[in-house]
Amino acid sequence: MTFFKQIKALVWKDLKSEFRTKEMLSSMLIFAFLVIVIFSFAFDPTDETLKEVFPGIIWVAFIFAGILGLNRSFVAEKQNNSIHGLMLCPADRSAIYFGKVITNLVLMLIMEAISLPIFIILFDYSFSGSILKLILVILLGTFGFVAIGTFLAALTANTRTSEVLLPIILFPVIVPLVIGAVESTGAIFIGEEMSEILPWLKVLGIYDLIFITVPFMLFDFVLEV
């Protein structure tokens, strides 16, 4: 089997078991939804200032909901020691990492695709930017988050306090990503020129590149017996 076929098999396995129960996806969706509703109590939803913080709110919701999925992705493999089964596969260890990244990416993108329109409707937000650019930013932002998140989730899955530990070690590391994602989303929402958005897209691009390379190089060390 080639490397890509191996990754495909791993992704297929994860998605298949997820879509049988839809456990993670439904929890992530409801959680993202809840975060937004809680925010509407924290800020006055009819106020003008809300327009300014709206890009921030949606990214906070995405990231919080994403953490739920990341936490499960390796902890679930610990049950019945399936992680050892995966490690025994005649495949490169990094295939496991890329497989999990793609699964988490798919789950998060589905969650975002459903919840973003709902958020916009709920807050009666007048959207005046380009949809294509927005999709690009969401793709870049989510990819970076999932790339480093999956890696650190593999790390914390082997510790005593895995679920608590992941946000603590993940949030400080994703600061540049959050800044880039929120700023570019905000700029797109108010219909800024491409030249205004481009620096932030660069931040996201560089971040994605670095944090897919570093885990790729270090992943072998995470899954040692």
């Binding site: 082997n158 005593r160 540049p176 880039g180 060390f221």
Partner: peptide
Amino acid sequence: SADESEKKARFAAIFGIVGFVDVPIVFMSI
């Protein structure tokens, strides 16, 4: 929060690398 001392050292080393690589990007983005 890691149990065995070998695991502790290995995980910490991995995070020590990731954390340090992150610092310049944090500075630039801020």
